[in-house]
Amino acid sequence: MQSFKVTSKEANLRLDKFLALELEQVLSRSAVQRLIDEKKVTVGGKIQKASYKVQAGDFIEVEIPPRPVYEITAEKLPLKIYFEDEEVILLEKPAGMVSHPAVGHWTGTLVNALLYHFGLEKADEENFRLGLVHRLDKNTSGLLLVAKTMTAHSQLQKQLKDRTLKRRYQAISWGHLKGKKGLIDLPLGRSPADRKKVVVTKEHSRPAMTEYEVLESFSFSQLLQIALRTGRTHQIRAHLSHLGHPVFGDPEYGGRDKALGGIKGEYRQQAAWALELIERQALHAFYLSFVHPVTKEKLDFFSELPDDFQALLNYLRTLEK
């Protein structure tokens, strides 16, 4: 049972929307709706409809059924490994691969591949202790660090929190950002309109900071180097989209047809051809640095741009000649 007390700022929200915001890390809005329909939600001890407008001081209780435990099966999938020992493994996740199994993605993930690599046939979802130190979006490629022991995972998580574990990305964005360098310091939270996306908002949000540096500028785009001060879901994609310069090729955050519609004159056809070179967001985690949890040695790794990203970059460069 989970309980919530409505604040004055949250007053007059629909009950289903209020709970969807409060439980965004646990349940989808449709799942919240089902709990309300099944009378698993009470307001002041009484059953209310999803359309009920919550009031300041309302005490809301939600009975959330236990989530079923799924079995993760090993799969023989190719892995590009940069470093591995008894404590950690550093590898490159290709675009199109989900990092960790979840609803709708129980096979073909990085974790399925790692199980096979470690010689395990399968693992219980709850008891599987392979520790992804961080994650990358499905269609973001690049370096990803995995802890092989609980001690290593704890120490690397601390490095991530203390920002001593460094991650840098390269991205191609639409348009031209202001200045050669900049810091985007805007809070991010789930979009009320689409729970799969995040947006800049002050409501139910968390601080998010993204540093960028312009490496090259083209007629209708730029090559950026990006460093994260925080690690929010979709952070780079949401921040750049909010500024009106979405990541090139990103369909969820306005980086394909919507951005192309804003290109005028001679550059429109060139931009359309450029989009044909990449089917996903042009975002790659090219650099990762951390202190080894046992040896205490500082390790630095670089990853080359994937073929689709490099082909796009080469094309943009030829347009400038």
Rank of each mutant, 00 (worst) to 15 (best):
D250W: 12
L115S: 07
A95C: 07
A271T: 04
A31I: 01
A227S: 12
Q270A: 07
G261N: 13
F301Q: 12
D124F: 06
L283V: 03
K196C: 09
F248S: 03
L114D: 01
Q55L: 08
L145V: 01
A282H: 11
L186S: 13
V291T: 10
L228N: 14
V111T: 04
L132W: 15
S3N: 06
H239N: 12
G179A: 04
G244D: 15
K9N: 03
A113P: 02
L79D: 04
G231C: 06
H242D: 07
H245I: 10
K17G: 04
I172C: 14
L165A: 00
K138C: 02
L165M: 06
N127R: 14
A238N: 06
T149C: 08
V32I: 10
S8A: 07
A259F: 10
N112P: 03
E297D: 03
T109R: 02
S217N: 05
S3I: 03
L19G: 00
A95F: 11
A74S: 05
H204P: 00
A282T: 06
K258R: 08
K166T: 13
G244L: 09
A113T: 06
L23W: 11
K196E: 09
V103S: 02
A20N: 12
V98A: 06
E297P: 00
K296F: 09
L77A: 04
H117R: 08
L312I: 01
H284W: 05
R67K: 10
I64C: 09
F301G: 07
N127L: 04
V214R: 03
E126S: 04
G265E: 10
L316A: 05
L260R: 08
P78M: 00
I64P: 13
P187A: 02
G131V: 04
G254V: 06
Q225K: 14
L19I: 00
K148M: 00
T233D: 02
E61Y: 13
L23Y: 05
G131A: 09
R229E: 15
